[in-house]
Design a protein around this nucleic acid. Structure first.
Length: 266
DNA sequence: ATGGTTGCTTAGCAA
């Protein structure tokens, strides 16, 4: 940080990297460029022993990981040392899928969450998705208070509003935008979570994911399905929110772009 | 268009 003021900002990122090893060069360049304080990653597609620990640490970050071979996998990178690390929802035998990781950093409870995609509507994966979102709400209710400083950052695999979908009519009957999925996410947020990006960019039209197929990115056929959800004490500190759309361009991009929110803590 | 592209793992699954 430059300048002479003493403001204390916390820059938080969420990014579904779709394989941390394939995306390592991009990730390291991003860390260098953005100098974020907290970076929540999803879809590592790597177990802990294949996570690029040395490169992350050399970039100046601590990390906590809930890894998994081939599928899923989440991590939190942080400038400050993470405390009270928790993997999964510790309430059942459903947690064979590595989709949730919690850490406490700089006095803020931060979760990196990779919500289930849901396959197709009506499938077992669809029911798992809706149930997983309900379980996450229960987990938050059991462990935290809406008055805490808390963030749920991740790929929610649900778009909230019509303005978060380039073509809402065409996506209306898909797992990413079906009414039941939107209702499940709304019910989770009703516990006490605010979409700070939506709050700061109320006009919408900004997306975080574009399908690899059918030229979705050049056509602008995107959805905002990556969210930084904040409790009220955190949401009121959010000052800027953007998507690093350039990360979807060029060679070997993830299908998701990073979402970046700055909180003014002082 | 029950299509299409990418990644992990090696033909099929998941997204």
């Amino acid at each position: 940080m430059t300048g002479t003021t003493q403001e204390v900002a916390l820059k938080v990122v969420t990014w579904n990297v779709n394989s941390v090893r394939t995306r390592l060069d991009r990730l390291l360049a991003f860390l260098e460029r953005e100098d974020a304080d907290i970076v929540c990653l999803q879809e590592l597609k790597a177990s802990e022993d294949r996570f690029p620990s040395e490169a992350i640490e050399a970039a100046g970050y601590h990390f906590a990981i809930n890894g998994q071979k081939t599928y899923n996998g989440v991590a939190v990178l942080s400038k400050s040392e993470p405390r009270e690390i928790s993997c999964g929802m510790d309430d059942s035998d459903w947690d064979d899928q590595a989709r949730l990781l919690g850490v406490t950093v700089d006095g803020v409870r931060v979760y990196s969450a990779y919500f289930p995609n849901g396959g197709s509507i009506g499938s077992d994966k669809w029911e798992f998705k809706l149930g997983w979102i309900r379980r996450l709400k229960q987990y938050l209710a059991d462990h935290h208070d809406p008055g805490d400083k808390l963030l749920v950052c991740g790929d929610s695999n649900v778009a909230i509003a019509d303005s978060d979908v380039a073509n809402p009519k065409r996506w209306a009957d898909t797992v990413l935008f079906a009414e039941a999925a939107r209702a499940a996410l709304k019910d989770l947020m009703d516990w006490g979570l605010i979409d700070v990006f939506g709050k700061l960019n109320p006009d919408g039209g900004i997306y975080s994911w574009w399908d690899y197929r059918q030229l979705a990115f050049p056509k602008g056929d995107g959805l905002r399905i990556d969210h930084i959800l904040a409790t009220e004490p955190m949401a009121q500190l959010a000052s800027e929110a953007r998507v690093d759309r350039d990360e979807r361009k060029g060679k070997q991009p993830s299908d998701h772009a990073p979402v970046i929110v700055t909180f003014d803590l002082s």
